[in-house]
Nucleic acid binder design. Sequence first.
DNA 1: TCAATAGTGTCTGTAAGACAGTATTGT
DNA 2: ACAATACTGTCTTACAGACACTATTGA
Lengths: 232, 232
Amino acid sequence: MSSAYDPAAYLPFAVTVDLVVLTLRDGELQVLLVERGAEPWRGRWALPGGFVRPDEGLDAAAARELVEETGVRDVPGHLEQLASYGDPDRDPRMRVVSVAYLALAPDLPEPHAGTDAARAAWVPVAEAQRRPLAFDHARVLADGVERARAKLEYSPLAAAFCGEEFTVADLRRVYEAVWGRRLDPRNFHRKLTGVPGLLVDTGRTRAEGRGRPATLYRRGSVTTLHPPITRD
Amino acid sequence: MSSAYDPAAYLPFAVTVDLVVLTLRDGELQVLLVERGAEPWRGRWALPGGFVRPDEGLDAAAARELVEETGVRDVPGHLEQLASYGDPDRDPRMRVVSVAYLALAPDLPEPHAGTDAARAAWVPVAEAQRRPLAFDHARVLADGVERARAKLEYSPLAAAFCGEEFTVADLRRVYEAVWGRRLDPRNFHRKLTGVPGLLVDTGRTRAEGRGRPATLYRRGSVTTLHPPITRD
DNA sequence: TCAATAGTGTCTGTAAGACAGTATTGT
DNA sequence: ACAATACTGTCTTACAGACACTATTGA
Protein backbone atom coordinates (compact mmCIF):
# COMPACT_ATOMS: atom_id res chain seq x y z
CA MET A 1 0.00 0.00 0.00
CA SER A 2 1.56 3.26 -1.08
CA SER A 3 1.48 6.35 1.12
CA ALA A 4 -0.40 8.19 -1.63
CA TYR A 5 -3.26 5.80 -1.14
CA ASP A 6 -6.08 5.73 -3.67
CA PRO A 7 -9.07 3.57 -2.67
CA ALA A 8 -10.65 3.83 -6.10
CA ALA A 9 -7.74 1.91 -7.59
CA TYR A 10 -8.91 -1.16 -5.68
CA LEU A 11 -12.61 -0.98 -6.53
CA PRO A 12 -13.00 -2.81 -9.83
CA PHE A 13 -15.45 -5.47 -8.59
CA ALA A 14 -19.16 -5.99 -8.42
CA VAL A 15 -20.39 -8.42 -5.76
CA THR A 16 -23.57 -10.42 -6.09
CA VAL A 17 -25.30 -13.08 -4.04
CA ASP A 18 -26.75 -16.10 -5.79
CA LEU A 19 -29.18 -18.41 -4.06
CA VAL A 20 -29.56 -22.18 -4.22
CA VAL A 21 -33.03 -22.46 -2.67
CA LEU A 22 -34.00 -26.08 -2.13
CA THR A 23 -37.39 -27.35 -1.09
CA LEU A 24 -39.47 -30.50 -1.14
CA ARG A 25 -42.43 -30.54 -3.52
CA ASP A 26 -44.37 -33.63 -4.52
CA GLY A 27 -41.85 -35.75 -2.64
CA GLU A 28 -39.09 -34.43 -4.87
CA LEU A 29 -36.12 -32.15 -4.23
CA GLN A 30 -36.73 -28.94 -6.17
CA VAL A 31 -34.77 -25.75 -6.71
CA LEU A 32 -35.94 -22.22 -7.38
CA LEU A 33 -34.90 -20.98 -10.84
CA VAL A 34 -35.61 -17.76 -12.71
CA GLU A 35 -35.65 -17.20 -16.43
CA ARG A 36 -33.45 -14.25 -17.25
CA GLY A 37 -35.25 -11.32 -18.85
CA ALA A 38 -32.12 -9.36 -19.76
CA GLU A 39 -28.75 -9.90 -21.35
CA PRO A 40 -26.45 -11.62 -20.83
CA TRP A 41 -27.98 -15.08 -21.03
CA ARG A 42 -31.44 -13.66 -21.79
CA GLY A 43 -33.96 -16.49 -21.85
CA ARG A 44 -31.69 -18.86 -19.93
CA TRP A 45 -32.62 -20.28 -16.55
CA ALA A 46 -30.47 -19.12 -13.67
CA LEU A 47 -30.28 -19.15 -9.92
CA PRO A 48 -32.01 -16.17 -8.32
CA GLY A 49 -29.73 -13.48 -6.99
CA GLY A 50 -28.70 -9.88 -7.25
CA PHE A 51 -26.18 -7.24 -6.40
CA VAL A 52 -25.07 -6.65 -2.86
CA ARG A 53 -25.95 -3.10 -1.88
CA PRO A 54 -23.18 -0.74 -0.79
CA ASP A 55 -24.17 -0.71 2.90
CA GLU A 56 -25.37 -4.26 3.24
CA GLY A 57 -23.59 -7.33 4.62
CA LEU A 58 -23.42 -10.54 2.62
CA ASP A 59 -25.78 -12.51 4.86
CA ALA A 60 -28.23 -9.60 4.85
CA ALA A 61 -28.13 -9.41 1.06
CA ALA A 62 -28.81 -13.13 0.79
CA ALA A 63 -31.73 -12.89 3.22
CA ARG A 64 -33.17 -9.95 1.33
CA GLU A 65 -32.90 -11.68 -2.03
CA LEU A 66 -34.49 -14.79 -0.57
CA VAL A 67 -37.54 -12.78 0.51
CA GLU A 68 -37.72 -10.93 -2.79
CA GLU A 69 -37.42 -14.01 -4.97
CA THR A 70 -39.76 -16.29 -3.05
CA GLY A 71 -42.30 -13.57 -2.30
CA VAL A 72 -42.51 -14.83 1.29
CA ARG A 73 -42.02 -12.28 4.04
CA ASP A 74 -40.26 -14.46 6.61
CA VAL A 75 -38.87 -17.53 4.91
CA PRO A 76 -38.59 -20.31 7.46
CA GLY A 77 -35.87 -22.91 7.19
CA HIS A 78 -32.15 -22.42 6.91
CA LEU A 79 -29.74 -20.07 5.16
CA GLU A 80 -25.97 -20.47 5.04
CA GLN A 81 -23.10 -19.32 2.90
CA LEU A 82 -22.04 -21.86 0.30
CA ALA A 83 -18.97 -20.58 -1.56
CA SER A 84 -17.75 -17.73 -3.74
CA TYR A 85 -17.18 -17.78 -7.47
CA GLY A 86 -15.05 -15.18 -9.17
CA ASP A 87 -13.57 -16.30 -12.46
CA PRO A 88 -12.57 -13.19 -14.40
CA ASP A 89 -14.81 -14.03 -17.35
CA ARG A 90 -17.86 -15.43 -15.58
CA ASP A 91 -19.87 -12.31 -16.51
CA PRO A 92 -19.16 -10.58 -19.84
CA ARG A 93 -20.34 -7.19 -18.57
CA MET A 94 -17.85 -6.66 -15.81
CA ARG A 95 -15.81 -8.29 -13.11
CA VAL A 96 -18.25 -9.97 -10.75
CA VAL A 97 -17.62 -12.02 -7.64
CA SER A 98 -20.67 -14.00 -6.62
CA VAL A 99 -21.16 -15.21 -3.07
CA ALA A 100 -23.50 -18.18 -3.24
CA TYR A 101 -25.87 -19.10 -0.42
CA LEU A 102 -27.73 -22.29 0.26
CA ALA A 103 -31.29 -22.03 1.54
CA LEU A 104 -33.44 -24.93 2.69
CA ALA A 105 -37.12 -24.18 3.01
CA PRO A 106 -40.42 -25.96 3.49
CA ASP A 107 -42.89 -26.13 0.64
CA LEU A 108 -43.49 -22.49 -0.37
CA PRO A 109 -46.08 -20.96 -2.68
CA GLU A 110 -45.43 -20.62 -6.39
CA PRO A 111 -42.93 -17.78 -6.90
CA HIS A 112 -43.63 -14.67 -8.94
CA ALA A 113 -41.05 -13.25 -11.32
CA GLY A 114 -38.95 -10.40 -9.92
CA THR A 115 -37.68 -7.29 -11.64
CA ASP A 116 -34.93 -8.97 -13.68
CA ALA A 117 -36.72 -12.24 -14.32
CA ALA A 118 -39.13 -13.21 -17.05
CA ARG A 119 -40.36 -16.17 -15.00
CA ALA A 120 -39.66 -17.95 -11.76
CA ALA A 121 -40.43 -21.56 -10.96
CA TRP A 122 -39.66 -24.55 -8.79
CA VAL A 123 -37.80 -27.12 -10.86
CA PRO A 124 -36.87 -30.66 -9.83
CA VAL A 125 -33.14 -30.71 -9.17
CA ALA A 126 -32.57 -33.63 -11.51
CA GLU A 127 -34.16 -31.66 -14.34
CA ALA A 128 -32.39 -28.42 -13.43
CA GLN A 129 -29.07 -30.23 -13.65
CA ARG A 130 -29.88 -31.31 -17.19
CA ARG A 131 -30.78 -27.79 -18.34
CA PRO A 132 -28.08 -25.40 -19.51
CA LEU A 133 -27.95 -22.69 -16.85
CA ALA A 134 -26.66 -19.13 -17.12
CA PHE A 135 -23.18 -18.11 -15.94
CA ASP A 136 -21.48 -20.82 -13.85
CA HIS A 137 -24.72 -21.65 -12.10
CA ALA A 138 -24.58 -25.33 -13.01
CA ARG A 139 -21.54 -25.65 -10.81
CA VAL A 140 -23.05 -23.53 -8.04
CA LEU A 141 -26.16 -25.68 -8.06
CA ALA A 142 -24.10 -28.87 -7.95
CA ASP A 143 -22.09 -27.52 -5.03
CA GLY A 144 -25.26 -26.56 -3.18
CA VAL A 145 -26.94 -29.91 -3.67
CA GLU A 146 -23.81 -31.73 -2.57
CA ARG A 147 -23.57 -29.51 0.53
CA ALA A 148 -27.18 -30.29 1.41
CA ARG A 149 -26.60 -34.01 0.94
CA ALA A 150 -23.53 -33.96 3.13
CA LYS A 151 -25.07 -31.85 5.88
CA LEU A 152 -28.02 -34.17 6.34
CA GLU A 153 -25.59 -36.79 7.53
CA TYR A 154 -24.42 -34.99 10.63
CA SER A 155 -26.80 -32.10 11.21
CA PRO A 156 -30.49 -31.81 12.07
CA LEU A 157 -31.10 -29.77 8.90
CA ALA A 158 -33.74 -32.09 7.47
CA ALA A 159 -36.22 -30.29 9.72
CA ALA A 160 -35.53 -27.08 7.78
CA PHE A 161 -37.50 -28.63 4.90
CA CYS A 162 -40.49 -29.17 7.19
CA GLY A 163 -42.86 -26.86 8.99
CA GLU A 164 -42.73 -26.03 12.66
CA GLU A 165 -44.09 -29.46 13.56
CA PHE A 166 -43.34 -32.64 11.69
CA THR A 167 -43.37 -36.41 11.96
CA VAL A 168 -40.49 -38.85 11.72
CA ALA A 169 -41.88 -39.91 8.35
CA ASP A 170 -41.66 -36.28 7.14
CA LEU A 171 -37.96 -36.29 7.98
CA ARG A 172 -37.49 -39.62 6.30
CA ARG A 173 -39.08 -38.34 3.11
CA VAL A 174 -36.62 -35.43 3.18
CA TYR A 175 -33.68 -37.79 3.41
CA GLU A 176 -35.07 -40.00 0.69
CA ALA A 177 -35.64 -37.09 -1.67
CA VAL A 178 -32.28 -35.40 -1.04
CA TRP A 179 -30.26 -38.59 -1.19
CA GLY A 180 -32.32 -40.24 -3.89
CA ARG A 181 -32.57 -43.56 -2.10
CA ARG A 182 -35.07 -45.37 0.11
CA LEU A 183 -34.43 -45.77 3.80
CA ASP A 184 -35.84 -48.43 6.08
CA PRO A 185 -38.66 -46.66 7.99
CA ARG A 186 -38.17 -48.79 11.07
CA ASN A 187 -34.43 -48.34 11.46
CA PHE A 188 -34.75 -44.67 10.57
CA HIS A 189 -37.37 -44.18 13.25
CA ARG A 190 -35.33 -45.93 15.92
CA LYS A 191 -32.25 -43.96 14.94
CA LEU A 192 -33.82 -40.51 14.94
CA THR A 193 -35.75 -41.00 18.15
CA GLY A 194 -32.56 -42.33 19.69
CA VAL A 195 -30.58 -39.11 19.31
CA PRO A 196 -31.04 -37.31 22.63
CA GLY A 197 -32.31 -33.73 22.30
CA LEU A 198 -33.01 -33.96 18.58
CA LEU A 199 -36.80 -34.25 18.67
CA VAL A 200 -39.20 -32.62 21.11
CA ASP A 201 -42.46 -34.53 21.48
CA THR A 202 -45.44 -32.19 21.21
CA GLY A 203 -47.73 -34.82 22.71
CA ARG A 204 -50.00 -34.57 19.69
CA THR A 205 -50.30 -36.74 16.60
CA ARG A 206 -51.22 -36.29 12.96
CA ALA A 207 -53.25 -38.72 10.89
CA GLU A 208 -52.06 -39.14 7.31
CA GLY A 209 -54.91 -40.89 5.53
CA ARG A 210 -54.79 -44.55 6.38
CA GLY A 211 -52.59 -45.92 9.10
CA ARG A 212 -51.75 -45.18 12.67
CA PRO A 213 -51.31 -41.44 13.35
CA ALA A 214 -47.72 -40.32 13.83
CA THR A 215 -46.31 -38.39 16.75
CA LEU A 216 -45.71 -34.72 16.02
CA TYR A 217 -42.30 -33.37 16.97
CA ARG A 218 -40.63 -29.98 17.10
CA ARG A 219 -36.93 -29.31 16.53
CA GLY A 220 -34.77 -29.90 19.58
CA SER A 221 -31.65 -28.03 20.56
CA VAL A 222 -28.94 -30.30 19.17
CA THR A 223 -26.81 -28.92 16.34
CA THR A 224 -24.84 -32.08 15.54
CA LEU A 225 -26.10 -35.60 14.99
CA HIS A 226 -24.28 -38.18 17.09
CA PRO A 227 -24.14 -40.74 15.71
CA PRO A 228 -24.64 -39.47 12.14
CA ILE A 229 -27.16 -40.80 9.63
CA THR A 230 -24.94 -42.46 7.07
CA ARG A 231 -25.61 -42.61 3.35
CA ASP A 232 -23.19 -45.31 2.24
CA MET B 1 -31.51 -4.24 -14.74
CA SER B 2 -32.55 -1.05 -16.53
CA SER B 3 -32.13 -0.71 -20.26
CA ALA B 4 -29.81 2.25 -19.69
CA TYR B 5 -27.29 -0.03 -18.06
CA ASP B 6 -24.35 1.44 -16.21
CA PRO B 7 -21.76 -1.11 -15.05
CA ALA B 8 -19.92 1.45 -12.96
CA ALA B 9 -22.92 1.76 -10.67
CA TYR B 10 -22.32 -1.80 -9.51
CA LEU B 11 -18.60 -1.56 -8.91
CA PRO B 12 -18.22 -0.26 -5.36
CA PHE B 13 -16.28 -3.27 -3.99
CA ALA B 14 -12.70 -4.26 -3.45
CA VAL B 15 -12.05 -8.00 -3.21
CA THR B 16 -9.19 -9.50 -1.25
CA VAL B 17 -8.05 -12.99 -0.41
CA ASP B 18 -6.96 -13.80 3.14
CA LEU B 19 -5.06 -16.94 3.97
CA VAL B 20 -5.25 -19.24 6.96
CA VAL B 21 -2.00 -21.13 6.44
CA LEU B 22 -1.64 -23.97 8.93
CA THR B 23 1.43 -26.08 9.47
CA LEU B 24 2.97 -28.37 12.04
CA ARG B 25 6.04 -27.04 13.83
CA ASP B 26 7.54 -28.53 16.98
CA GLY B 27 4.58 -30.89 17.21
CA GLU B 28 2.24 -27.93 17.41
CA LEU B 29 -0.37 -26.53 15.04
CA GLN B 30 0.87 -23.12 13.90
CA VAL B 31 -0.53 -20.40 11.68
CA LEU B 32 1.22 -17.84 9.49
CA LEU B 33 0.65 -14.27 10.70
CA VAL B 34 2.00 -10.94 9.50
CA GLU B 35 2.39 -7.75 11.47
CA ARG B 36 0.72 -4.93 9.58
CA GLY B 37 3.06 -2.16 8.50
CA ALA B 38 0.38 0.28 7.37
CA GLU B 39 -2.93 1.67 8.53
CA PRO B 40 -5.47 0.53 9.35
CA TRP B 41 -4.49 -1.73 12.23
CA ARG B 42 -0.82 -0.80 11.90
CA GLY B 43 1.21 -2.92 14.30
CA ARG B 44 -1.51 -5.52 14.70
CA TRP B 45 -1.05 -9.12 13.67
CA ALA B 46 -3.20 -10.25 10.79
CA LEU B 47 -3.67 -13.09 8.37
CA PRO B 48 -1.62 -12.72 5.20
CA GLY B 49 -3.53 -11.70 2.12
CA GLY B 50 -3.96 -9.08 -0.52
CA PHE B 51 -6.09 -7.68 -3.28
CA VAL B 52 -7.36 -9.84 -6.09
CA ARG B 53 -6.04 -8.50 -9.36
CA PRO B 54 -8.47 -7.43 -12.07
CA ASP B 55 -7.73 -10.35 -14.39
CA GLU B 56 -7.13 -13.04 -11.82
CA GLY B 57 -9.47 -15.73 -10.47
CA LEU B 58 -10.00 -16.20 -6.76
CA ASP B 59 -8.13 -19.50 -6.53
CA ALA B 60 -5.26 -18.05 -8.54
CA ALA B 61 -5.06 -15.03 -6.28
CA ALA B 62 -4.93 -17.26 -3.21
CA ALA B 63 -2.21 -19.42 -4.75
CA ARG B 64 -0.19 -16.33 -5.69
CA GLU B 65 -0.48 -14.84 -2.21
CA LEU B 66 0.49 -18.15 -0.65
CA VAL B 67 3.72 -18.18 -2.65
CA GLU B 68 4.44 -14.53 -1.94
CA GLU B 69 3.81 -14.76 1.79
CA THR B 70 5.63 -18.01 2.48
CA GLY B 71 8.50 -17.28 0.11
CA VAL B 72 8.25 -20.84 -1.22
CA ARG B 73 7.98 -21.24 -4.97
CA ASP B 74 5.73 -24.30 -5.10
CA VAL B 75 4.00 -24.72 -1.78
CA PRO B 76 3.09 -28.37 -1.32
CA GLY B 77 0.03 -29.38 0.64
CA HIS B 78 -3.54 -28.28 0.17
CA LEU B 79 -5.42 -25.08 -0.67
CA GLU B 80 -9.19 -24.66 -0.57
CA GLN B 81 -11.69 -21.88 -0.28
CA LEU B 82 -12.95 -21.33 3.24
CA ALA B 83 -15.64 -18.62 3.27
CA SER B 84 -16.22 -14.98 2.39
CA TYR B 85 -16.53 -12.08 4.78
CA GLY B 86 -18.10 -8.82 3.73
CA ASP B 87 -19.51 -6.81 6.61
CA PRO B 88 -19.86 -3.22 5.41
CA ASP B 89 -17.58 -1.85 8.12
CA ARG B 90 -14.91 -4.53 8.25
CA ASP B 91 -12.38 -2.19 6.62
CA PRO B 92 -12.57 1.53 7.41
CA ARG B 93 -10.99 2.53 4.10
CA MET B 94 -13.57 1.15 1.73
CA ARG B 95 -16.02 -1.60 1.08
CA VAL B 96 -14.03 -4.85 1.02
CA VAL B 97 -15.18 -8.41 0.54
CA SER B 98 -12.57 -10.91 1.62
CA VAL B 99 -12.53 -14.44 0.29
CA ALA B 100 -10.67 -16.54 2.83
CA TYR B 101 -8.68 -19.63 1.90
CA LEU B 102 -7.40 -22.45 4.04
CA ALA B 103 -3.94 -23.80 3.28
CA LEU B 104 -2.36 -26.84 4.89
CA ALA B 105 1.36 -27.18 4.40
CA PRO B 106 4.29 -29.19 5.70
CA ASP B 107 6.89 -27.50 7.84
CA LEU B 108 8.12 -24.54 5.77
CA PRO B 109 11.09 -22.23 6.26
CA GLU B 110 10.76 -19.08 8.34
CA PRO B 111 8.78 -16.51 6.32
CA HIS B 112 10.08 -13.10 5.31
CA ALA B 113 7.95 -9.98 5.55
CA GLY B 114 6.25 -8.93 2.33
CA THR B 115 5.61 -5.46 1.00
CA ASP B 116 2.78 -4.56 3.38
CA ALA B 117 4.06 -6.40 6.42
CA ALA B 118 6.49 -5.33 9.10
CA ARG B 119 7.09 -8.91 10.12
CA ALA B 120 5.89 -12.40 9.33
CA ALA B 121 6.04 -15.41 11.64
CA TRP B 122 4.66 -18.81 12.46
CA VAL B 123 2.56 -18.57 15.61
CA PRO B 124 1.01 -21.44 17.59
CA VAL B 125 -2.71 -21.38 16.91
CA ALA B 126 -3.56 -21.35 20.61
CA GLU B 127 -1.49 -18.21 21.04
CA ALA B 128 -2.78 -16.59 17.86
CA GLN B 129 -6.33 -17.05 19.12
CA ARG B 130 -5.45 -15.15 22.29
CA ARG B 131 -3.92 -12.22 20.41
CA PRO B 132 -6.12 -9.39 19.14
CA LEU B 133 -6.01 -9.69 15.36
CA ALA B 134 -6.72 -7.05 12.72
CA PHE B 135 -10.07 -6.78 10.92
CA ASP B 136 -12.32 -9.79 11.52
CA HIS B 137 -9.38 -12.16 11.27
CA ALA B 138 -10.02 -13.76 14.65
CA ARG B 139 -13.24 -15.17 13.26
CA VAL B 140 -11.61 -16.17 9.97
CA LEU B 141 -8.89 -17.99 11.87
CA ALA B 142 -11.42 -19.76 14.07
CA ASP B 143 -13.40 -20.84 11.01
CA GLY B 144 -10.25 -22.12 9.33
CA VAL B 145 -9.10 -24.13 12.31
CA GLU B 146 -12.54 -25.63 12.75
CA ARG B 147 -12.65 -26.54 9.05
CA ALA B 148 -9.27 -28.26 9.33
CA ARG B 149 -10.41 -30.17 12.42
CA ALA B 150 -13.58 -31.31 10.73
CA LYS B 151 -11.94 -32.31 7.47
CA LEU B 152 -9.41 -34.59 9.16
CA GLU B 153 -12.33 -36.77 10.18
CA TYR B 154 -13.43 -37.82 6.74
CA SER B 155 -10.64 -36.80 4.33
CA PRO B 156 -7.03 -37.84 3.85
CA LEU B 157 -5.87 -34.24 4.39
CA ALA B 158 -3.54 -35.03 7.27
CA ALA B 159 -0.98 -36.00 4.63
CA ALA B 160 -1.01 -32.38 3.42
CA PHE B 161 0.90 -31.49 6.59
CA CYS B 162 3.59 -34.05 5.76
CA GLY B 163 6.18 -34.33 3.04
CA GLU B 164 5.93 -36.57 0.02
CA GLU B 165 6.64 -39.62 2.15
CA PHE B 166 5.52 -40.11 5.71
CA THR B 167 4.93 -42.69 8.40
CA VAL B 168 1.72 -43.59 10.18
CA ALA B 169 3.16 -41.92 13.28
CA ASP B 170 3.61 -38.70 11.28
CA LEU B 171 -0.08 -38.73 10.46
CA ARG B 172 -0.98 -39.50 14.04
CA ARG B 173 1.02 -36.51 15.24
CA VAL B 174 -0.93 -34.33 12.80
CA TYR B 175 -4.23 -35.53 14.21
CA GLU B 176 -3.01 -35.08 17.76
CA ALA B 177 -1.83 -31.54 17.12
CA VAL B 178 -4.89 -30.41 15.18
CA TRP B 179 -7.40 -32.00 17.53
CA GLY B 180 -5.43 -31.34 20.70
CA ARG B 181 -5.87 -34.84 22.07
CA ARG B 182 -3.87 -38.05 22.20
CA LEU B 183 -4.80 -41.00 20.06
CA ASP B 184 -4.01 -44.63 20.74
CA PRO B 185 -1.08 -45.40 18.40
CA ARG B 186 -2.14 -49.02 17.97
CA ASN B 187 -5.77 -48.46 17.08
CA PHE B 188 -4.79 -45.51 14.88
CA HIS B 189 -2.31 -47.66 13.00
CA ARG B 190 -4.81 -50.45 12.45
CA LYS B 191 -7.47 -47.99 11.33
CA LEU B 192 -5.35 -46.05 8.84
CA THR B 193 -3.75 -49.09 7.28
CA GLY B 194 -7.22 -50.62 7.06
CA VAL B 195 -8.63 -47.97 4.71
CA PRO B 196 -8.11 -49.44 1.23
CA GLY B 197 -6.25 -47.13 -1.16
CA LEU B 198 -5.34 -44.55 1.46
CA LEU B 199 -1.67 -45.40 1.92
CA VAL B 200 0.78 -46.59 -0.71
CA ASP B 201 3.64 -48.59 0.76
CA THR B 202 6.98 -47.38 -0.63
CA GLY B 203 8.71 -50.56 0.58
CA ARG B 204 11.21 -48.48 2.52
CA THR B 205 11.36 -47.55 6.19
CA ARG B 206 12.59 -44.66 8.27
CA ALA B 207 14.32 -44.94 11.63
CA GLU B 208 13.35 -42.28 14.15
CA GLY B 209 15.96 -42.54 16.89
CA ARG B 210 15.18 -45.48 19.12
CA GLY B 211 12.62 -48.05 18.21
CA ARG B 212 11.66 -50.15 15.27
CA PRO B 213 11.79 -48.22 11.98
CA ALA B 214 8.41 -47.29 10.53
CA THR B 215 7.14 -48.07 7.06
CA LEU B 216 7.21 -45.10 4.68
CA TYR B 217 4.00 -44.41 2.77
CA ARG B 218 2.91 -42.11 -0.03
CA ARG B 219 -0.61 -40.69 -0.45
CA GLY B 220 -3.06 -43.03 -2.13
CA SER B 221 -5.87 -42.09 -4.43
CA VAL B 222 -8.80 -42.04 -2.01
CA THR B 223 -10.49 -38.70 -1.39
CA THR B 224 -12.87 -39.77 1.36
CA LEU B 225 -12.14 -41.77 4.50
CA HIS B 226 -14.51 -44.70 4.95
CA PRO B 227 -14.96 -45.24 7.80
CA PRO B 228 -14.01 -41.80 9.17
CA ILE B 229 -11.57 -41.14 11.99
CA THR B 230 -13.85 -39.88 14.76
CA ARG B 231 -12.96 -37.24 17.32
CA ASP B 232 -15.77 -37.69 19.85
C1' DT C 1 -61.59 -57.54 8.36
C1' DC C 2 -58.10 -55.68 5.64
C1' DA C 3 -54.69 -52.45 4.19
C1' DA C 4 -51.67 -49.08 5.55
C1' DT C 5 -48.66 -46.63 8.40
C1' DA C 6 -46.37 -46.06 13.22
C1' DG C 7 -43.47 -47.91 16.31
C1' DT C 8 -40.69 -51.98 19.01
C1' DG C 9 -37.77 -56.11 19.50
C1' DT C 10 -34.20 -59.07 18.01
C1' DC C 11 -30.48 -60.85 15.44
C1' DT C 12 -26.03 -60.47 12.87
C1' DG C 13 -22.04 -58.35 11.14
C1' DT C 14 -18.80 -54.58 11.49
C1' DA C 15 -16.11 -51.45 13.68
C1' DA C 16 -14.39 -48.62 17.73
C1' DG C 17 -11.80 -48.44 21.91
C1' DA C 18 -9.01 -50.80 25.40
C1' DC C 19 -5.05 -53.18 25.92
C1' DA C 20 -1.94 -57.63 25.93
C1' DG C 21 1.52 -59.23 23.28
C1' DT C 22 5.20 -59.60 19.43
C1' DA C 23 8.80 -57.37 16.24
C1' DT C 24 12.73 -54.56 15.44
C1' DT C 25 15.61 -51.09 16.29
C1' DG C 26 19.37 -47.76 19.19
C1' DT C 27 21.89 -47.41 23.52
C1' DA D 1 19.62 -56.37 28.53
C1' DC D 2 16.66 -52.55 28.19
C1' DA D 3 13.99 -48.88 26.51
C1' DA D 4 11.50 -47.23 22.82
C1' DT D 5 8.74 -47.39 18.93
C1' DA D 6 6.22 -50.25 15.22
C1' DC D 7 2.87 -53.36 14.48
C1' DT D 8 -0.69 -57.49 15.45
C1' DG D 9 -4.25 -59.99 17.96
C1' DT D 10 -8.17 -60.21 20.97
C1' DC D 11 -11.91 -58.80 23.76
C1' DT D 12 -16.03 -55.95 24.74
C1' DT D 13 -19.37 -52.82 23.56
C1' DA D 14 -22.06 -50.10 20.31
C1' DC D 15 -24.33 -49.40 16.35
C1' DA D 16 -26.00 -50.34 11.38
C1' DG D 17 -28.93 -53.00 8.54
C1' DA D 18 -32.31 -56.66 8.00
C1' DC D 19 -36.60 -57.94 9.23
C1' DA D 20 -40.35 -60.20 12.43
C1' DC D 21 -43.71 -58.43 15.18
C1' DT D 22 -47.14 -55.33 17.70
C1' DA D 23 -50.13 -50.94 17.70
C1' DT D 24 -53.49 -47.93 15.81
C1' DT D 25 -55.88 -45.92 12.43
C1' DG D 26 -59.33 -45.44 7.82
C1' DA D 27 -61.94 -47.91 4.45
